[in-house]
Amino acid sequence: MNKRNLTDYLLTGFFWVSGLFILLVLVAILAYLIWRGGAFINMEFILGSPAGYPLGSEGGIFPAIKGTLWLVLLALIFSIIPGLATAIYLSEYGRNQRLAEPVNLLVQSMTGIPSIVVGLFVYALCVVKLRWGISLLAGGVALSLMVFPVIVVTSRDALLAVNDNYRLVAKALGVSESYTLWRIILPRAVPGILAGILLALGYAAGATAPIMVTAAAIIASSSGVLLEPVMALPYHLYILFNEHMSLDNAYATALVLVLMLLFINALALWLHSMQERNNAR
């Protein structure tokens, strides 16, 4: 075998290995979590409250699940309407306006802000200045700031992906702009927009750093009172591990969190492919 051939074989081998490595990572993570945590997940764990001493070393994670749901709900309430409005502006009305470019650039750059910085900002503004304290409300605000650019970018792209001919034909037929938007463009972008919202939802549910400084408590009832701290799944996982409370519960919590997020992610991917099929028509 000559040298050229050998290099080719080695390179091809390397490309294959690095491609299969990606698959291996996901499979390994899932398999390991299921192996270590799967046995500890039962109804008691999902629907029970932390117990034992220190609190959390035994018992369930129900308040953490509730807290995460509350946080995500608030984040979406705060971010969906402004996010969609900005996306509609960027895709439908701002195309020829000078404002659109800086808005686009700034929102795009916002996706890069480290989540801990969002936490820092909300801590100073809401927790300290507005005297909300460590609270569900502050956490909701922090998460909404974090997912807002995600919603804008994904919805904008979903709207832009709608075939431009619809806009042209509507305009040519003298259909009003708002009718075109609400009855023609938006319905076609709905799967893509929903996919973006789901993505944002998953992103918010898994975020730890921003709620760690604004909303999370080690133990709380998470009953939805806006100005009280809450428990949250990712933070609970961090505490379980870092404070050496219970490794078994930590694995089980991680598994619950990952399965939840993978389900949301898969749903988003499915919606996204639906949108692509829509646009092909």
């Binding site: 990606i22 698959l23 990572v25 996901l26 993570i29 390991y32 979590l33 998953g202 549910a205 898994g206 975020a207 730890t208 750093a209 990712p234 933070y235 996982l237 961090y238 591990f241 930590a250 991680a254 969190l257 990952v258 997020l261 993978l262 949301i264 992610n265 898969a266 991917l269």
Partner: peptide, 17 residues
């Protein structure tokens, strides 16, 4: 899609593992 799923796993889980 596996790439997408990997980005969907929260950082605290990566840190924990």
């Amino acid at each position: 899609p596996v790439l997408n799923m990997l980005t969907g796993i929260p950082s605290v889980v990566y840190g924990f593992l």
